[in-house]
């Protein structure tokens, strides 16, 4: 264990926990601002998109296998396959492409 990393993890875990815990224990009303509610509604999707692109193209070490994996993921996700199926299929597709001789 490296101390610096342990500090990062502690800060990370504490922040994540407080974000979850404070509203559940303290909050008893609903947010009424339409902007705030819309912002909260959109933020998870925006975060996921910003994290996925362009990072997904570098996730396998090969642009080609990542692109094929992404394509497979998008097709299966479009058909509303479960998270596990999409994940495994994308990974399998990337793996098969990485076995190609070019």
């Amino acid at each position: 264990m490296r101390l610096s990393i342990l500090i990062y993890i502690a800060v990370m875990a504490l922040t994540t926990y407080l974000v979850r815990m404070i509203p559940v224990t303290a909050f008893r009303k609903k947010i009424t601002s339409r902007f705030a509610r819309s912002f909260f509604y959109y933020i998870p999707y925006a975060v996921l998109a910003a994290m996925t692109f362009p990072a997904i193209f570098y996730s396998t070490g090969s642009l080609l296998s990542a692109a094929v994996g992404l394509a497979v993921a998008m097709v299966l996700a479009w058909k509303s396959c479960s998270l596990i199926v999409v994940s495994l299929a994308a990974s399998l597709a990337a793996f098969l492409v990485s076995l190609l001789p070019f």
């Binding site: 996921l48 996730s59 396998t60 994996g69 996700a77 479009w78 990337a94 076995l99």
Partner: peptide
């Protein structure tokens, strides 16, 4: 290596799977 590298895409593929159905 190839197998391990291919699995690096799993978490991102899951993000795609979370986002696409509601985006549709």
């Amino acid at each position: 290596t190839e197998l391990r590298m291919s699995m690096g895409i799993m978490i991102y593929a899951m993000f795609v799977a979370i986002v696409l159905p509601p985006a549709k």
